[in-house]
Design a protein around this nucleic acid. Structure first.
Lengths: 117, 117
DNA sequence: CGCTTTTTAAACCGTTCGGTTAAGAAACCT
DNA sequence: AGGTTTCTTAACCGAACGGTTTAAAAAGCG
């Protein structure tokens, strides 16, 4: 069963190292060694993470002498955003319920008590 | 090291069966058997998927006689949406690279037929 | 050409994942 | 009580994951 693009995108995003790499790339291109520097793991491990990100379409790679600079490609994240949008009304709803609950809790000791309705 | 919220949320969303379950729950509560009906897999497999979704905070469960009805809990999806928002400017900026990505996607879909969406 | 730098490939290892089957619980119904 | 329905647990299996170490490839430089 071939993985859909959302499958591979979500799977790629499920690792904190890979999300940190994306966050770093949001500030500009970087080489593999630059990307690896903040992490306490071997270079091959980072190389594997980069391959996962690339196969998910989240980064692209160039050539600059021995370096293989990485660049952020955000298109799959747009699909993720569209996925979550389908559920927005549900967390809006629960926020409303939470908001109402918190207002009830604070109704007693609030300086400006807000009555419901 | 405990997995962060985003870790478990993204990991839960990386499976198409689990995303389909969430889509179903967006239309209202459902029992385990009802959720299992569309899938060609055993009930224990669905039960495991539900446990993954629950541990990710994406569903909650109640009791109704023998049934354990599932309900969508969208709060983690809000965190996912916030995550992607940090990258919105990158897909807003470059439509040319989006085109390139989509063309790559099309090219790679020879043996994996494009799923819905 | 050798030598260094940067990155990847290969092989391996333990854990997790996604599924199965078979058995156990828990609540309902006569 | 016994039986049925609904769901979960337990044990197992193969494949994928995330890391390691070692070795090799590719490009620049003396």
């Amino acid at each position: 069963m071939p993985a859909s693009n959302l499958d591979t995108t979500f799977a790629a995003l499920a690792d904190p190292t890979r999300r940190a790499i994306l966050a770093r790339l949001a500030q500009g291109e970087a080489s593999v060694s630059e990307l690896a520097a903040p992490f306490a793991m071997s270079l091959p491990a980072i190389s594997k993470h980069l391959r996962v990100l690339q196969r998910a379409g989240l980064i692209s790679r160039g050539r600059n002498a021995q370096q293989r600079p990485c660049r952020l490609e955000a298109a799959p994240l747009r699909e993720v955003a569209e996925f979550t949008e389908h559920y927005r009304r549900f967390w809006d709803e629960s926020f409303d319920r939470l908001d109402e609950y918190l207002r009830e809790l604070q109704a007693g000791d609030d300086k400006e008590p807000r009555r419901k309705h």
